[in-house]
Computed example of a mutant assay.
Amino acid sequence: MNNVIEIKQIDRGTINYLVRNLDDFGKDKAIKKGLGDAGKVFEKGGKGRLKRSMKSGSRGVTGNLLRSFNVRVKKSKPGVLVGFKQGKDGGSHAHLVDMGTTDRYWKTKSHKYVGKVKANHFWTDTEEQDYPKALETLYDGIERAVNRINNRQ
C-alpha cells in the first residue's frame, strides 16, 4: 500500500488572491513557505502519534523511524513531500508499523515463526486528523510570506 499524503484540492482562487500583487519569484517563495509550514504540521502530528504508540524499555524502539521523518518542498512545481528517509537508519519500515503485518516465517527448511507486527495507524491517523489544520497552515503561511515580502518593498 502506498502511504503518500497528497493535498490535491486546494482553492487556487484563494492562493491567487493572496499572491496577486507579487512578481513570479515572490509568488514561488511565498507558496513554498506555506507548503513547508503545512508539511511540518504532518511531521509534528506523525511524530507525536508514533511516540505515543511506541514501546518503551530495554526491548523498545531504536528511534530510526522518528529520526527519518522528512519534509521537502518541491523545487520546480508547487508541492511538498512528507514522508520518511530511506536506506540505512531510515524509515523504510514505516508502512509495516502503520499498517501491520500478518504472521511471518523464515524462508528456510524450518519455517520458524518470527511473529507479526500489530498495526498502530500512526500515519493513517495523521493524514485523516491533520489535513484541515495543514490546509489552514498553508494559507496562513502564504499570507505571512506575502505580507513580509510586501513590507520589504
Rank of each mutant, 00 (worst) to 15 (best):
G13Q: 09
L66S: 06
R59P: 04
T14L: 14
Q86M: 12
K40H: 02
I31E: 11
K109P: 06
T14P: 01
A38F: 00
D130Q: 11
K55T: 11
M1E: 07
K118P: 04
I15L: 12
I7F: 14
D103L: 12
N3Q: 10
K88C: 05
K133V: 06
L65Y: 02
K29Q: 11
R59F: 13
H121K: 13
K109H: 12
K133R: 06
R152P: 11
D140S: 14
V19I: 15
V97W: 04
R59G: 11
G100Q: 07
A30Q: 02
D89P: 05
N70M: 07
M99I: 00
W123T: 00
N147Q: 14
M99H: 04
R67C: 01
I15W: 09
L18K: 06
T124I: 08
V80N: 01
K32W: 02
H93F: 15
G39F: 05
F122R: 02
I149W: 10
L35G: 03
S76G: 09
A94G: 09
M54S: 15
G48L: 07
F122E: 01
G13D: 10
T102Q: 13
H95Q: 08
E6S: 11
N150R: 14
R152C: 12
Y105N: 06
V114Y: 08
I149H: 07
Y105E: 06
W106M: 15
R49S: 13
G115Y: 08
K44S: 14
D103E: 15
G115N: 08
F69G: 00
R12E: 13
W123R: 01
A30D: 05
S56N: 11
K116C: 06
A119F: 11
I7W: 10
G100V: 05
V82I: 14
N2W: 05
Y113A: 00
K116T: 03
I31Q: 13
D37I: 01
K29Y: 06
S68I: 04
S53V: 13
A134P: 08
I5E: 03
R12M: 14
